[in-house]
Every structure is written in structure tokens, then in C-alpha cells.
Computed example of a mutant assay.
Amino acid sequence: MKLKQLEGLLGNLDQFTAPKIELEQYPTGPHIASRMLFTAENSFGDVSGKVVADFGCGCGTLGIAAALLGADHVVGFDVDADSLEIAYLNAEELELDVNFVQCDIRNFEFREKIIDTIVMNPPFGTRKKGADMDFLSVALKVASQAVYSLHKTTTRDHIRRAAMRDYNAKSAEVLCELRYDVPQLYKFHKKKEVDIAVDLWRFVPIDAA
């Protein structure tokens, strides 16, 4: 599947109807989501034929992108039932077999590494300090092959240091810097749209083959 085709399909997905600020719910736009998964597949082979998990999946954009690119099995995890309902309908509309599970990522339990690749757009931690790092910590324990994640560019040094020192990543690489379009979703937003610089990271777990 070509990048433009993937972006077009993701652009038709339904997004949050009543986003919850306490969960920092912002849609992952089709421009960023398509490039994130396209890079994971075409540069590293981390999607096609793999078991892929979307942590904090929201309305399912990243997981659905993985399914469209040939992932063998996709599971989306989110704490919010309303978002999961939208995600399920999005996958159903495209006739994709994606599983969705309601759970708090921080309480994620694992017995063995059955997930190859994790993709995620975690909370930036602006409402709840450290939320982004909670996601990253768990992801690096669960994934057997790679973790792809979006983080604010202003946190780059902190992310790299924590991943390598505290979470035992074998490698932590910024693949590119992207512009994240934050729409006017909440009452406290004064502008119609704001661009935030974000890094697309690829982390490799310490025990990856």
C-alpha cells in the first residue's frame, strides 16, 4: 500500500466526539499516523506479519494503520470505553480484524513477550506529569522487537536518557521531527489550531534479537 493511499484511508476514520481532557485525548492525524506506520514497515519491517499493539489506542488510528499494512494480529488497548467503541466501528467499517481491550496500560500484566511491535501516541504528560514515561516504561518491557512512539521535541534529551538509563532500551533513535496539529477541542483552547513539534522515536528493547 502506498503512503498516500494509507493517509487517505486514515483520514476517513471517525475521531473523538467528546474528548476527555483528563486523559489528554487528541486525535492522531492521518499525516503523522501514516508516516509513522509506513516508516515502521518500509524502513524496518516491523509491521507486516507481526503482532502489533497500539497502546492508548484512542479511536484506533495507529492500530488500524498497522492492520492495513499487513500486521498478522493487532490489539488496541485503552482505558476509555467510549474511545474503544469508536475504534471498533472504524475497524469494522474497513473490514479489518482488530481486537480492542479496555485496560489501564500502567496495570498491564505480561507473562511472555508475545507482542512484536508497539505503536503509540501516549499522553504528553501535560495534565498528569510522567504519563508519557509510564507508557514508555511498560512498552519497553512488553515489546520483543520495537516500540514506536511520539513525544514532544522539547523532551528529547529527557526521553533518550530515561529510555537508555532507566528502561534498559538497547537503542533510542529519533527517526524524524513532525508537526502535530492540535485542533481546538477544549474550552481552554484559545486558537483554532496549534502546531506542536514532536519526535517520532524508535526504541529497541534490551533483549530484542
Score class of each variant (00 low, 15 high):
T39H: 06
G58Q: 02
P123G: 05
H73S: 05
D46I: 07
Q15V: 15
V51S: 13
E109L: 06
G49S: 04
E92L: 15
P123A: 05
V98F: 10
A33P: 12
V98W: 06
C103H: 05
V51C: 10
P122A: 03
E93S: 14
C103E: 14
D116S: 09
A87V: 04
Y88G: 13
F77S: 03
V47E: 08
A67F: 09
L68H: 06
T39W: 04
V74K: 02
A81Q: 13
N90F: 09
E92N: 15
D46H: 13
N90I: 04
L10C: 10
F38W: 15
F38I: 04
L89H: 06
T28N: 06
L89D: 09
D82A: 14
Y26H: 10
F100L: 05
C59A: 06
N42Q: 14
D72Q: 14
Y88D: 09
Y26R: 12
H73K: 15
H31R: 08
D82T: 05
G8E: 15
A18G: 08
F77C: 00
Q102K: 14
T61E: 05
S43C: 11
P27A: 00
A67E: 11
Y26E: 01
A71R: 07
A87L: 11
N99Q: 09
I105R: 04
D116P: 09
A40Q: 00
E109A: 08
L37G: 01
R111N: 15
N12L: 11
E41F: 02
D104W: 14
V79M: 13
G56S: 01
G63M: 06
D116R: 00
T28R: 01
G8N: 15
G58H: 06
C59E: 07
I118D: 04
D116M: 04
M36K: 04
K20D: 14
I64K: 12
Q5H: 10
G63E: 05
I64P: 11
G11S: 09
V119T: 02
E112G: 03
T28D: 00
K4Y: 10
E24A: 06
I21N: 12
H73Y: 13
I64E: 05
A33F: 07
V51M: 11
V74P: 05
G49M: 12
G60K: 03
A18I: 07
C59K: 01
S48G: 15
K113T: 10
F108D: 06
F124G: 00
V47W: 06
I118H: 09
G56I: 03
T117H: 01
H31S: 01
F108A: 09
H73N: 11
A33D: 10
A65C: 11
K2S: 12
P122K: 03
G11C: 08
A66D: 01
G45Q: 11
D97K: 15
L23E: 02
E24G: 07
D104V: 03
D14K: 12
G49D: 11
I105Q: 01
G29M: 04
K4M: 11
A81P: 05
F108P: 03
V79H: 04
D72M: 14
L3D: 10
N42V: 08
N90W: 02
L94P: 08
C59I: 03
G56L: 00
P27N: 03
E41Y: 06
G49Q: 14
A53C: 13
A33C: 04
Q25T: 04
A71M: 14
E22V: 13
V79K: 14
L62E: 00
P27W: 01
F100W: 04
V119L: 08
